[in-house]
């Protein structure tokens, strides 16, 4: 299988003054087109740094990221990010927030009317058309995250990067949004890389789960295939032996073999 997105021997060290900290060490990961990959690990294991390196927001110290065999080292709309805290611009309406990316990415390839239709289409995908003229301060946390997803999807990214997208939401909203993301993945077939610290979420959504060892010098400890058939139903899975087995594997990894040690 030819990798679509390839992380090739990535090391990342941060230097502050004389102190050098190695955050990531020798990360190798191949992701196929259309795959949904979750990265899970305890806090401080560098999973966010890893996502930032894929996004191009942070440079790798050694190694490189290849997307369709081309090296990426700066941020771009082909790797759109859904940020944990939604990062909508508060002075723009929902529509304008999505428009910001669309106008830039499709400046030449789409006419003004086509861009408008495309923005509305993407807002419709996340069921947010009704709030298109509202400002972020006027909508709920779950809605903001929906708009964040629409903004990322509207850039037609090759890889969609989700940085703990449901972390700041309450449990019910989170479940609802997870279902939405699952449906979107089913419908659009995007390649998705998601950072999470929620075991159920990882097993429910992913094709593969990448488990990170604890930092410093965190690396990939284990990669687990989740062979559950799609579409997946939250309720059916609760008693599915395969689901429970996968869940147990991740839990064992996180809480037995790589138990979180509070940094001194």
């Amino acid at each position: 299988m030819k990798p679509y997105l390839k992380l090739d021997h990535i090391d990342k060290t941060f230097t502050r003054g004389n102190a050098t900290t190695e955050v990531l060490k020798d990360i190798n990961l191949n992701i196929a087109r259309g795959e949904y990959v979750s990265i899970i690990g305890h806090s401080g294991c560098g999973k966010s740094t890893m996502l930032n390196i894929i996004a191009g927001l942070t440079g790798a110290s050694i190694g490189c990221v290849l997307l369709e065999d081309r090296e990426v080292n700066s941020p771009g709309p082909d790797r759109a990010v859904v940020f944990q805290n939604h990062s909508l611009l508060p002075w723009l309406t929902v529509y304008q927030n999505v428009q910001l990316g669309v106008d830039k990415v499709f400046a030449k390839s789409k006419s003004k009317a086509e861009r408008e239709a495309w923005i509305l289409h993407n807002l419709n995908l996340v069921q947010m058309t009704h709030a298109k003229d509202k400002r972020p301060s006027e909508i709920s946390g779950g809605m903001k995250q929906r708009v964040g997803i629409a903004r990322a999807l509207a850039m037609e990214p090759k890889v969609l990067l989700l940085d703990e997208p449901f972390g700041a939401l309450d449990a019910l909203t989170r479940a609802h949004l997870q279902d939405s993301v699952m449906a979107l993945h089913q419908k659009l077939g995007n390649t998705i890389v998601m950072i999470t610290h929620d075991v159920d979420e990882a097993v429910l959504l992913s094709d593969r789960i990448v488990m990170m060892t604890n930092g410093p010098s965190a690396t990939i400890g284990e990669v687990l295939d989740v062979p559950l058939t799609r579409p997946r139903k939250r309720l059916d899975l609760a008693t599915d032996p395969l689901y429970l087995k996968c869940r147990k594997r991740v839990l064992e990894f996180l809480y037995e073999r790589h138990r979180f040690v509070e940094a001194a």
């Binding site: 996004a55 191009g56 927001l57 700066s74 941020p75 771009g76 709309p77 790797r79 759109a80 990010v81 940020f83 805290n85 990062s87 611009l89 910001l100 990316g101 830039k104 990415v105 850039m155």
Partner: peptide, 14 residues
């Protein structure tokens, strides 16, 4: 200016 806004601008390539 929050880093988040700078990140958004970087991803959109303003």
């Amino acid at each position: 200016i929050p880093q988040d806004y700078r990140n958004v601008a970087a991803v959109v390539q303003l």
